[in-house]
Design a protein around this nucleic acid. Structure first.
Length: 986
RNA sequence: GCCGAGGUGGCGGAAUAGGCAGACGCGCGGGACUCAAAAUCCCGUGCCCCAAAAGGGCGUGUGGGUUCGACUCCCACCCUCGGCACCA
């Protein structure tokens, strides 16, 4: 009996037999996507399915796609974002959510303005043409939004409120004007945002970026640095995006320490390693540091000025290149190390940046690689003050300078020695530093010397051991050394001399935490307490204090451009800078025919105005705002897009936000997402928002890549035009192929229009969601598209087949009447519903949801080939299959749904629910492992497999298993209910 | 250099609690249909050994470890991609 069951089961139901006994193909209406899709294209919009019930906030869901910059046309790569979103929204609607799913346009920006300058079109016309094109493409894709809420950041009724936001920030002191170095592209003759500088080069023309001193407007985002960092913890965002923001904010704890120059000036440095203070042997200021002029010795003025100018001339790439050798210049004056009281020289160097910390550092060459290289180059002394934890000590004595007794003595002390041509090299544990120095001293010849590097450095001479623990000791040791070692003549420091001994090089600097040495009262402090004790000591002595600094800089928002929101400020010769009164907003962009490169400053009629305070003549600010300001609050405007009296309805905003799911590209991981968080927190602090994070969950979809072909003579060649053998169609040259993100400029885009004409929008949508995990970058595949096309044809044919067979049949099957095959289909149907539902509600790996649907379709199709398939089961399966597939391929599903005779539209129909009971198939297959290898797969009734004891007994008694166990002694059996049995036997 | 993600068939990928590795799709091989091709449909398809089958061995970047059992956990390392990068 048991045998019979497992035999029969082993045949399975899923596959057709090889004998090809298929019913002859029936000629049916072919799948014609173009016709079907056009039929339904406006249906959903007309029925208003995508309109949010904004005043009903029960079971609300705010789904948001990052709004696009409308340039040119959408390509298949863009579809990743919008098609994913549309599928999610359709799913949510069927699940009964009240979904807010708006769309708008990030419509200000440089490309529109450049198009205007180059083609003589007005940027607004250019922008709106693109918007129309985008909307046409969305419609073709079946991607729907609540279009009543459409916004465009370039329209006065939107940017009025962007200007309002500026005024609010200004009122609170968070918008300020300051002189500063800004990025300047000499080729484009324009100021660039930090984010438009890619590795020191202009994002558009690739020219090296220069720095210019200009007075600009900034938003004080740094005031929110701590909160922006801390609140990352509460966001359901991809870890790597949070990490990127964390790095960008770049919090570091340390201390500010005050050094007094001999001229009396106080120089404050920032360091993360206050515990290395005793090793600070010089100070370095940024070349632009304001104290530089008064700290420069009169005889060095010209040299210093020359260095400053040289720095000024460097591009960002050159200055920040780590390859570049360190350079600097000595100011000719000295400061006192507050811990040791020793005189240390003050330098300037371009590796110190004015914008970070205090723009000045203490040089601790023993424990900072940059300072070490700088010290080595300029002959500045190195004093080790931190013991390297767990590191070996090393010592070196040149050949011929030690007695014969030396080696036996070392052996006795257990110190490893290696004798090479140039001398004796010793290895020993660092804590034996002094012991080794003592042995060495005893066995040196009178003219001998040796160097010991461990917990600090020792130079050993017959008459004394000098610890390099202060500048004075360093000088004395160097003097003695140079007297003896003629080959080291000209070396300026002990470090420079020791650097010549390659055996010792790797120990001359390290940046680890460790025990403090040579540090006066704090010597001996263990690494774990070093920083906190030093900070306490500094504060007690009034020499400094513990502080925190951030890499995050204030947000420069001025742009000398036309196509942006004008900054609502007025410059009055009497009253200074005066904000435009709120009632006078918006400050509208002037209507002009020609736009110049200087933006608003090029339009004389825009500038004159009257001062709102004194009524006298005044000038308007001619800067416009960075477009990231426009997009930093747009998600709030969707709630009440037409409100003329306020930026958003506070009550509704607080009910609908934060956004429940925000989907967009990773390229915005830092900028847009950080700015939006900042602005949200600011509006929260104003009391206008009850939440302080805008996006509860974030999902970042990956880019779509495609081969791009480069011809040295004819540049980018569209893949379709590439001639046989990867050759240029124009000149026959061999093309360079690279698989890169689809982009218009590389001509490697796949056009949705062509795809839709050839296969239909459903095929494109299905492939887009099936090609791989949505968060990962992936290569577009024409063959993959065809696979989806074939699937939809099979699905279509299966659906028509079932419709024909089951006309008039009710869709409610009775599980009581099921045979094993029906049972299996039933279980598979419910498993599929479960799988698809969970993907939409969880991790959004919709590729696996599509795979599950395909699997079920295949099995259902095979089941129709069986004798007398249950018509009710067929009908019910088709019904649910259509619903499950509808978020992916809404057109064909809507069509089949109506053919099924369902009165309502798909989006009015509840999403199928799965029945957990149905998932429990009557029989399960249990793999049996013997010594770790699967040796049998047995089918048995589920209830038997559910109990470990019964399961174990069944498996051990089974003939297939018995055969395998012959001659073996069963030592252990692990029976996992309904999963597997593992037998250990010898 | 630092941080992050990842490495699975010929390819995209699946295995979402340590329990049948390779689901689904592509490609490829064979077949059907066709005068032929394309399209479509059917069967097969991780690698190796054996003429085939039966059977066996190997197999998730590498090397170790934990476990009855490891793509999954631990340790060490290699490679690829992304971000940051003279940030004191």
């Amino acid at each position: 009996m048991r045998d019979g069951r497992s035999q029969r089961g082993a045949e399975g139901f899923g596959r057709r037999g090889g004998s090809g006994e298929r019913r002859p193909p029936v000629s049916r209406e072919p799948y014609n996507p173009q016709e079907i899709e056009e039929k339904w294209r406006d249906f959903w919009r007309e029925r208003g399915f995508f309109k949010a019930k904004i005043h009903d906030t029960r079971k609300k869901f705010y789904y948001l796609n990052m709004f696009p910059y409308p340039s040119g046309k959408l390509h298949a790569g863009h579809g990743r974002n919008y098609i994913l979103g549309d599928a999610i929204v359709r799913f949510l609607l069927m699940r009964g959510w009240n979904v807010l799913n708006p769309m708008g346009w990030d419509a200000f920006g440089l490309p529109a303005e450049n198009a205007a300058i180059e083609q003589g079109v007005h940027p607004r016309d250019w922008t709106w043409r693109n918007i129309q094109e985008f909307k046409r493409q969305f419609r073709a894709w079946g991607v729907e939004y609540d279009w009543d809420r459409e916004i465009a950041t370039c329209e006065p009724d939107y940017y009025k409120w962007t200007q309002w936001l500026f005024l609010k920030l200004y009122e609170k002191g968070l918008a300020y004007r300051a002189k500063g170095k800004v990025n300047w592209c000499p080729h484009c003759e324009v100021v660039l945002a930090n984010e438009q500088v890619i590795s020191g080069r202009c994002w558009r023309c690739n020219s090296p970026v220069e720095k210019r001193e200009l007075e600009q407007w900034y938003f004080k985002i740094t005031a929110y640095a701590e909160r922006l960092l801390r609140d990352l913890a509460k966001l359901d965002w991809p870890e790597h995006v949070k990490k990127m923001q964390e790095n960008w904010i770049g919090r570091s704890e340390g201390a500010e320490i005050i050094f007094r120059a001999e001229g009396g000036q106080e120089i404050t440095v920032f360091t993360t390693r206050p515990d290395t203070l005793w090793g600070a042997t010089f100070l370095v200021l940024a070349p632009e540091h304001p104290l530089v002029p008064e700290l420069t010795a009169p005889d060095r003025k010209s040299e210093i000025r020359a260095y400053q100018e040289a720095t000024e001339r460097l591009t960002e790439v050159e200055r920040t290149s780590t390859e570049k050798e360190k350079t600097g210049a000595f100011l000719g004056t000295y400061a006192l190390n507050p811990a040791t009281g020793e005189r240390i020289p003050i330098w300037i160097a371009d590796y110190v940046l004015l914008g970070y910390g205090t723009g000045a550092i203490m040089g601790v060459p023993a424990h900072d690689e940059r300072d070490f290289l700088f010290a080595l180059k300029y002959g500045l002394p190195v004093i080790p003050v931190i013991a390297h934890p767990g590191e070996q000590g090393k010592a070196f004595v040149p050949a011929g300078l030690y007695r014969e007794t030396f080696l036996p003595a070392l052996k006795e002390a257990g110190v490893a020695v290696e004798i090479r041509g140039d001398g004796a090299s010793l290895h020993f544990p660092a804590e034996k530093t002094d012991q080794v120095a003592n042995i060495l001293q005893k066995h040196l010849r009178p003219e001998g010397w040796g160097a010991v590097v461990g917990e600090g450095w020792r130079l050993v001479f017959p008459e004394e051991i000098v610890n390099i623990g202060s500048l004075a000791e360093e000088r004395r040791a160097l003097g003695k050394l140079l007297e003896r070692a003629s080959d080291l003549k000209g070396k300026r420091t002990v470090a420079e001399a020791l650097w010549e001994i390659s055996f010792l090089r790797d120990l001359l600097f390290h940046a680890e935490y460790g025990k403090m040495v040579n540090s006066g009262p704090l010597s001996g402090t263990p690494g774990s307490a070093a920083i906190s004790r030093t900070v306490a000591w500094l504060e007690e002595k009034g020499l400094g204090k513990g502080t925190v600094t951030y890499k995050l800089r204030d947000w420069l928002i001025s742009r000398q451009r036309y196509w942006g929101a004008p900054i609502p400020m007025i410059h009055c010769p009497r009253c200074g800078i005066v904000p435009v009164p709120e009632k006078d907003l918006p400050v509208k962009l002037p209507e002009v025919n020609r736009i110049g490169k200087l933006g608003l400053a090029d339009i004389p009629e825009f500038i004159p105005t009257t001062c709102p305070r004194c009524g006298g003549p005044a000038r308007r600010d001619t800067d416009t705002m960075d477009t990231f300001v426009d997009s930093s609050w747009y998600f709030l405007r969707y709630i009440s897009p037409k409100d003329e009296t306020r930026p958003f309805d506070p009550e509704l905003v607080n009910k609908w936000l934060p956004v429940d799911l925000y989907v967009g590209g990773v390229e915005h991981a830092i900028l847009h997402l950080l700015y939006s968080r900042f602005i949200t927190k600011f509006l929260h602090d104003l009391g206008l928002l009850s939440f302080d994070e805008p996006f509860r969950r974030l999902f970042t979809q990956g880019m779509v890549t495609y081969p791009a072909y480069w011809c040295p003579a004819h540049h980018w060649i569209p893949p379709k035009e590439v001639a046989e053998g990867n050759r240029c169609p124009k000149c026959g040259a061999e093309l360079v192929v690279s698989v890169v993100a689809m982009s218009k400029s590389k001509k490697n885009v796949v056009s949705p229009d062509e795809l839709i004409a050839q296969y239909g929008a459903d095929t494109e949508r299905l492939y887009t969601l099936f090609m791989g995990p949505p968060e990962r970058e992936i290569e577009w595949s024409e063959e993959g598209v065809r696979g989806c096309w074939r699937f939809l044809n099979r699905f279509w044919n299966l659906a028509l087949d079932i419709l024909e067979r089951t006309a008039g049949v009710q869709a409610e099957p009775d599980p009581e009447t099921f045979g094993p095959k029906e049972q299996a289909i039933w279980a598979k149907l419910h498993a599929t519903i479960k799988k698809v539902t969970e993907e939409f509600e969880g991790r959004l790996a919709l590729n696996t949801a599509v795979a599950a649907i395909m699997e079920f379709t295949n099995e259902l199709s095979a089941y129709t080939e069986e004798e007398n398939p249950d018509p009710k089961l067929l009908r019910r399966s088709l019904r649910d299959l259509i619903l499950l597939l509808s978020p992916f391929t809404p057109f064909v599903c809507e069509e089949l749904w109506h053919r099924l005779g369902e009165g309502k539209a798909v989006l009015e129909t509840p999403w199928p629910e799965y029945d957990p009971k149905a998932l429990e198939e009557a029989e399960v297959e249990i793999p049996v492992q013997i010594n770790g290898k699967v040796r049998a797969r047995l089918r048995l009734p589920r209830n038997k497999a559910a109990d470990p004891k019964t399961l174990e007994a069944f498996v051990l008694a089974h003939p297939e298993v018995q055969v395998r166990l012959q001659g073996l002694k069963v030592e252990k059996v692990i029976a996992v209910p309904e999963k597997l049995v593992s037998i250990v036997a010898r």
